[in-house]
Design a protein around this nucleic acid. Sequence first.
DNA 1: GTGGTCTAGACCACA
DNA 2: GTGGTCTAGACCACG
Lengths: 128, 128, 128, 128
Amino acid sequence: MIIDPQSSKPIFEQIANQLRRQILSGVFKPNESLPSLRRLAKEIRVNTNTVQRAYDELSREGLVEARRGAGLFVIDADANSPSTKSEDRLSKELQKAIARAVEASVSPQRIRGIFRDALEVQLSKAQK
Amino acid sequence: MIIDPQSSKPIFEQIANQLRRQILSGVFKPNESLPSLRRLAKEIRVNTNTVQRAYDELSREGLVEARRGAGLFVIDADANSPSTKSEDRLSKELQKAIARAVEASVSPQRIRGIFRDALEVQLSKAQK
Amino acid sequence: MIIDPQSSKPIFEQIANQLRRQILSGVFKPNESLPSLRRLAKEIRVNTNTVQRAYDELSREGLVEARRGAGLFVIDADANSPSTKSEDRLSKELQKAIARAVEASVSPQRIRGIFRDALEVQLSKAQK
Amino acid sequence: MIIDPQSSKPIFEQIANQLRRQILSGVFKPNESLPSLRRLAKEIRVNTNTVQRAYDELSREGLVEARRGAGLFVIDADANSPSTKSEDRLSKELQKAIARAVEASVSPQRIRGIFRDALEVQLSKAQK
DNA sequence: GTGGTCTAGACCACA
DNA sequence: GTGGTCTAGACCACG
């Protein structure tokens, strides 16, 4: 991991880029690991917040998943293949809805935002 | 703007949520500025970083655009454009689909995974 | 029982909320046990400490009672007792009063402070 | 601060008791600090979780208030004296509602739980 | 110990 | 003055 503090590219971006490459090239295997926030921060001598921000990026991209109290885990792509009927149905419905939105040139970011909202609403309803 | 520092919901999220609502409902008009980082921070008595993070969210979602040295501007794809209708529709469709999945006890994790997949598929299709 | 590990709402709170609702709505009958710590923890795949904390909340609220070596028992002041009516009434009255205060932009902090004071006053009066 | 690990009294309770006494006797003045979790934990050689639990007690009692990222602050009793009309009104309404509930022998814990719920509901409504 | 959120205060590039 | 990045160090939820 090489950091250039002088670069115009933000440090957190440099970190994210290198981790992304390592994940995609299989240096980090699905379903475990990635160095802890504090360990990596110490190692490359930057603040934990900076590493945190890099991890945040990867989370947002869906490459990695943070489990509170446990660590950062590389997402297992296989686990994402729909299998049960409910999931299959959900997948198809989402595909359709998203397709229409994309067609109407709603930005991917907005789609994500709307999805997050929708999920949250449904989960809180379900809790009652 | 109501902030509850004791809430389990992060402050930056509370801010982002309220701003998002205000933008979509037209309180802030397209092509003009939101309150500056420091002004808003002072007003609601939180750290500038916290407001920054909220602004970051809205940027990512494509609702606003930051112009360095100038301020935050509401994106022109404005509140009454066809795009809003599309987003409304998308929101409703996602709500329904997710509600059914939750009912069928698909885990939030899986729902997110399936959504990510679906979005990716649609985006790559759209590129062709 | 639906758990969303990614939610900003703490897991123990999600668990407590759902159990509370189930108790109040009569899914769990008075004088009998809730699922054991370890069983529930295993079922929803969280750490026993997390479930423990949720049970702790319910204990504090007086909804359940832990009997060492036996389990968690729903308190007898049961779901259809006059007490529930009182609670319902209290809930509605608090809702109204708080709504007005929020409307008048009293901060959540102040509302909490005022509530604490009011409760203390009433309790000390009751002691006489 | 004196800790007796052999005592039957839980350590977190010993800590809480001593802190409480110090606060009430004015060793710690309103509106400022209290040693940080980790500092106190190190000083008296106990786990941070234990100190955490003691602080938790004091929070619940309304003696101190945790401000995220800043520290633990002694509540300013004066700041709790109602002054504006809205707060006055709120106070009276809460008094009445609570008085009735106490009369109907709703436990203080339940009252607190119901209040928390009610506040949360109103705040989330206000956000929309 | 691990990730997440927050504060205080700093420096930078840009207008 | 604006937004953007960074550090140091705090509490919080969780395993």
